[in-house]
């Protein structure tokens, strides 16, 4: 399916850890202005996909475009919310300090934040209903509060495209509802919000578009096209034993993974 200036285009992306591929040939495009879920069971490579999209990992092959451009040209329009467990929350900082980190940019290196930055940070905190915790130490927050701090930090970046890794994990029902309401409002303002989510039960209800992922791309599209029992079975059913065994083999035997390497081998094989 061709989309006009997709918010996100992932093209033939393969990624691996220690040479063991965990994403194979992922290829999809996502439209602007939608609430989109990247859905798949635990260990299916959702976090890895986000890391590759955000340039935190070097893919073995393939590329990523946002708004038809390279990430480096649209940095300020894109915001990333890492998985909550990816940081040590026992860090000496207050809630407000963390939210202000959303205002750290290349153009204010070793400068102090401006009054406008402080204003935006405070407003972002208000949007997630955490203003009363502004001075609280982050080591004293509950899981749901930590998630909201991370979301507020992302809001402070005032982006057009948001990529959030499991923002509903460790969150109570009331908070989940309020976060979802916030995300829906963001979509109404024309923002594109991409959420990594592992819970099938709620995925259909929450998102407009869904990317079903399990080591490879199972399906991507409007939710009604994607939520068919066949595709769900494919994503959540049996483990992809063949694929994971090949992955093990590649890691063990040190097979080359980069595309250029593959081409060389092909040439030799044919000749």
């Amino acid at each position: 399916m061709e989309i006009n200036t997709p918010a996100l285009e992932v093209h033939n992306l393969t990624a691996s850890y220690n040479r063991k591929p965990v994403l194979w040939d992922i290829d999809f495009q996502l439209p602007q202005g939608q609430l989109i879920g990247i859905v798949g069971p635990n260990g299916s490579g959702k976090t890895t996909l986000l890391k590759n999209i955000m340039g935190l990992m070097e893919p073995d092959s393939g590329y990523v475009n946002m708004f038809g451009q390279k990430l480096d040209d649209v940095r300020e329009r894109v915001s990333y919310v890492p998985q909550r467990e990816s940081v040590d929350w026992d860090f000496p900082a207050s809630v407000l300090e963390v939210v202000q980190m959303g205002r750290y940019r290349k153009n204010n290196l070793f400068k102090r934040l401006t009054a406008r930055d402080h204003e935006i940070a405070t407003q972002s905190l208000e949007k997630v209903n955490m203003l009363e915790y502004a001075r609280r130490q982050i080591s004293q927050l509950s899981g749901g509060q930590q998630q909201r701090v991370f979301i507020a930090r992302s809001l402070a970046q005032q982006a057009d495209l948001y990529l959030m890794d499991e923002p509903f994990v460790g969150v109570d029902a009331a908070t989940e509802e309020s976060i979802l309401k916030l995300l829906t409002e963001m979509r109404q303002e024309g923002k594109t919000v991409i959420i990594v989510h592992h819970d099938l039960q709620t995925a259909y209800e929450y998102f407009d578009w869904i990317v079903l992922l399990n080591t490879r791309l199972v399906a991507a599209g409007p939710k009604d096209d994607v939520f068919t029992s066949n595709l769900l079975q494919e994503a959540y059913g049996g483990r992809l034993t063949v694929l994971s065994r090949i992955g093990d083999l590649i890691a063990k035997k040190d097979f080359p993974l980069r595309e250029s390497d593959f081409k060389e081998k092909e040439g030799q094989g044919d000749g």
């Binding site: 890391k51 955000m54 340039g55 935190l56 480096d72 940095r75 300020e76 894109v78 915001s79 990333y80 890492p82 990816s86 940081v87 040590d88 860090f91 900082a93 963390v98 980190m101 959303g102 750290y104 940019r105 290349k106 290196l109 930090r153 970046q157």
Partner: peptide, 11 residues
């Protein structure tokens, strides 16, 4: 605190 976020922010 969070090097991934720093990198994603373009620092």
């Amino acid at each position: 605190f969070n090097p991934d976020f720093a990198e994603a922010s373009g620092l």
